[in-house]
Design a protein around this nucleic acid. Sequence first.
DNA 1: ACTAGTGCGTTCTATTTTGGAACTATCTTT
DNA 2: AAAGATAGTTCCAAAATAGAACGCACTAGT
Lengths: 147, 147
Amino acid sequence: MKWNDLHKEACPVARGLSVIGDRWTMLVLRDCFLGIRRFEPMQERLGITRHVLADRLRKLEAAGVLRREAYQERPLRHEYRLTDRGKALYPVLVTLIDWANTHVPPNGEASVSLLSRKTGDPIAPVLIDRNTGEEITHRTVNASVSE
Amino acid sequence: MKWNDLHKEACPVARGLSVIGDRWTMLVLRDCFLGIRRFEPMQERLGITRHVLADRLRKLEAAGVLRREAYQERPLRHEYRLTDRGKALYPVLVTLIDWANTHVPPNGEASVSLLSRKTGDPIAPVLIDRNTGEEITHRTVNASVSE
DNA sequence: ACTAGTGCGTTCTATTTTGGAACTATCTTT
DNA sequence: AAAGATAGTTCCAAAATAGAACGCACTAGT
């Protein structure tokens, strides 16, 4: 299993990571979900090298996760927006946030949590099976290879 | 934001990635969830450098995601098992799998999907709020900083 | 016209990480 | 005594990232 050929693997974990498993990529996407769309603010917020940011944006666009859209001409300038495929990554982000908030507590006091946009109450994410309504855990699920 | 200080960030995405955002780490954990516990088979399955695998296992143990447990003495040998904190990462893995299966289709025919252990039926993971039962999307949720 | 400023990159060198192969250490088995 | 098993470590080359400077195409200010 070579890192650069991960996308050819049968395993969906490997294929998923071929897109979002890179250093910085999920942090770039976090900023996208927060509504940051342009190069300059992203670079400043992340403290990432311009070089690497340009590379990640290119790759995310190639993967269909972001799309580049002109927001002005003269000079031509583009911004980056999440595609549907990109928005579909939201559950991954949320489960990661939830895990980190309960298992990787911040050093200081400050923290970021998820609130319902409607009620303002904290959100407690649970993963369930749409078909049965049952909670999904590693005890209830099997991985299986199909043709 | 420096990569090596991500664990100090207030943002849970950053803190989470400080543990699992490394190249190979999630693939190591995938193997753990599949029941692989020992160095040699992991190294062979992953095709990862022994060097890097040893490093990842060390870091995951330090982060409390895996624990090292002796399975024999003479010579002393250890195996790696998921802790509760590690098992809590299962939803992250499942949402990643689900995303990859619908958005990063494999080149060939072979694929791996999730089946209910009880019924054998395919599983359709959805993220809901335990309090309200409503589905969680980027439209229904706000990120918010608390003291 | 000249200068500075903005936004989005690219280029360059130095440092860090990873890849790949060989080697070590401790036992058990033949 | 020699070979095999398991879990690493060590060494060098290749790749990725950090950090700073530069390029380009404009706009705004003087």
